[in-house]
Each structure stands twice: as C-alpha cells, then as structure tokens.
C-alpha cells in the first residue's frame, strides 16, 4: 500500500527536507517567505510548524546574505539549506556562490568543507518574463567546486534532494517551476540517488535524447510519438549536471549512433555544447550524424505567451529534431 503512495514534485522536495531535518539537528533552512508562509511555491509548507522558527528561518530579502549565511554556517559545522526563491536571483548572490561557496575548500588547502545546499526554482512557461523564467544552470556547472542537480520527476526529486543535503560540498538543487505539481509514486523511506549518476528514462535503439528537468518529460512525449513511426528513442536524463554522467551518455551514443541534446536554456553556451563536445571526443567514430542541440533562441525569455510558447523547446521541437537527425547519414569511406 504505502509504496503506492503518490507525491507531487514539490511534496517530494518537502519530504526530503523534512526527513533530513529529523535525521540531523544540524540541518536547517533559511530563505524568503519559507517559514510561516511555506515558500511561494509551497515547497516548505509545514516545516516551520514542525521544526520551529530557529530551524526554518524567514530571512530578509537579501540573497547575498542568504547564501553567505549558508557558507558561514556550513564552514563552521552546520548543514544549511538556503533557498533563493527564483533561479534568476542567483545573480544577486553570485559572489557568495561563485567566489566563496565553490572555492573555499580549495583555497584553504582542503581545510574546510561546506555541506550546504542552495535550493531554487528555474524554468519558464509561466509568462513570468525575462527575470523570473531563466535556466541558468550552465553558469553554475562552469564553477569547479559546485554540484548541480535538476530533477525531472518526484522520485528523482526526493532522492536527489536527500543526496544534496548529505553531500559535504555545496550543491544546488534546481526545481523546475512547471514540474511542481507533477505527481508520481515516491517511497516513504529516505533514499538517495547518487549525485553524478544519470538515468535511462526510456530504453531505445535508434537515437539518444539527452534531456533533463522539464525537457526530459517533453522528450518522453516525443518518444512515444516517434515510436509510432518506428523510431525508438533512448532517453538519458543525467539528473545531475555537475558532475555529469558522461559514461552513461557516451555508452548510449555508441549504441544508437545518433544524439539529440535538449535543454530549456539558451542554446548558445548552454550545457548542450558541453555534452555534444564530450560525445564527439569519446564516441566520434560511432556517430552517424553530428550531435543535434536543441535549446532556446539567443534572446531573453519573452513575456507574451504568444512568444514564449515558441521560445521554449517542447515535444514538437524535439520531434522535429529527431526526425531531422534520422535523415542524416555519414558516408563511411
């Protein structure tokens, strides 16, 4: 019975936090509106009532100090979870994330560890415009010292969040705003999904689609459609973007010989470029076509739904990308 229990993506996050707070008194949360209000997305609901104001802290609107609180508290022995309401707001706190959290351990010759988790919400699709819709994961993945996860479903959310909290390094958990209500079976007990381990969301033989967060779900929709045309897609969800499960991706590429990488972030300079590059370095001889990258156009996220619906990739874009790559063939001499 209980293993049939369903939770939403947001509830899975909440349960992970709750169970880790129960397990370890050093775990605390801090962020804007997360206490009495439970977070603007409801992901912290009930936690302050359960653990008290000293462990679930409503902070001022002070992103830099919020992350700094995490840095200082973790380096002195606590295990903070610090929340930045929207991913766009990491920019306000970038010094603490990039120059402090990511690098302290290294700069101190290893004589420090920062078991802190930064949680935030990214992605578009809500007409929230250019400052509340971004996918800035590439920025974070470029920073040695950080670990970055972007779950695509409730099960992964819980396991990854627990792993983030338990990890002794600064981790960034990026929730996708459009997935918060997604519901699936989530085990009641605490479990971990190891950071850096990807997942084959759907096995297939003809083409590999590498996609994460909301795009993994769009890829599933596209794959179901393509199966009707006789194209079997293998969908790899890396789940963790830093460190990246390159082995899993390369292994799949070697089997299917074709790869489409999809993300919601702007295509130029996005993670797709890194993934495509790794594939060509490690599986060049196996490829029947150049790796296809699907991402958003090189513009800020537009407000109007009339524009945003064409801006963010979706199952249709993926379908078109896969159909196109299936047409291409390398002539081997």
């Amino acid at each position: 019975m209980s293993d049939e229990r369903k939770l939403s993506y947001g509830q899975a996050f909440n349960e992970a936090v709750s169970q880790m707070m129960e397990a370890d008194p050093d775990v605390f949360c801090a962020g804007e509106d997360i206490g009495a209000f439970g977070g603007v997305f409801g992901t912290f609901l009930g936690l302050q009532a359960k653990f008290g104001e000293h462990r679930v802290v409503d902070t001022p609107i002070s992103e830099q100090a919020i992350v700094g609180l995490g840095v200082g508290a973790s380096v002195t022995g606590l295990r903070p979870i610090v929340d930045l309401m929207f991913m766009d707001f990491i920019c306000v706190a970038l010094d603490q994330i990039v120059n402090q959290a990511a690098k302290l351990k290294y700069m101190f010759g290893g004589e420090a560890s920062l078991p802190m988790t930064i949680t935030t919400a990214g992605g578009g699709g809500l007409s929230a415009a250019a400052q509340h819709s971004q996918s800035l994961e590439a920025l974070l993945c470029h920073m040695p010292g950080l670990k970055v996860v972007m779950p695509s479903n409730p099960y992964d959310m819980k396991g990854l969040m627990i792993s983030c909290i338990k990890d002794n390094n600064p981790t960034v958990m990026i929730k996708h705003k459009r997935l918060l209500g997604m519901s699936a079976v989530v085990p009641t007990e605490a479990y971990e999904i190891p950071l850096g381990k990807g997942n084959i969301l759907r096995p297939g033989t003809d083409v590999t689609i590498v996609a994460y967060a909301r795009m993994a779900n769009e890829a599933l929709i596209a794959a179901a459609e393509l199966a009707k045309e006789g194209i079997e897609c293998e969908i790899i969800d890396p789940r963790t973007l830093q460190p990246l499960d390159t082995d899993l991706i390369v292994d799949s590429a070697q089997r299917t010989n074709r790869v489409v990488v999809v993300h919601e972030a702007v295509r130029f300079g996005g993670l797709g470029g890194e993934i495509a590059s790794q594939i060509q370095e490690l599986a060049f001889d196996y490829l029947d076509a150049p790796v296809t990258r699907i991402g958003a156009p090189f513009s800020p996220v537009p407000f109007s739904p009339a524009l945003e619906q064409h801006y963010i990739p979706d199952a249709k874009t993926i379908l078109a990308g896969v159909r196109e790559i299936m047409q291409r063939n390398v002539i081997r001499g």
């Binding site: 007409s127 929230a128 415009a129 250019a130 400052q131 509340h132 800020p300 537009p302 407000f303 524009l307």
Partner: peptide, 10 residues
C-alpha cells in the same frame, strides 16, 4: 509598451 516582451513586471 514593451511590444509584449516585458509584461506587467517590466
């Protein structure tokens, strides 16, 4: 005002 690109918040 913003040709639909900014919305209320911009």
């Amino acid at each position: 005002y913003c040709k639909g690109k900014g919305g209320s918040m911009h």
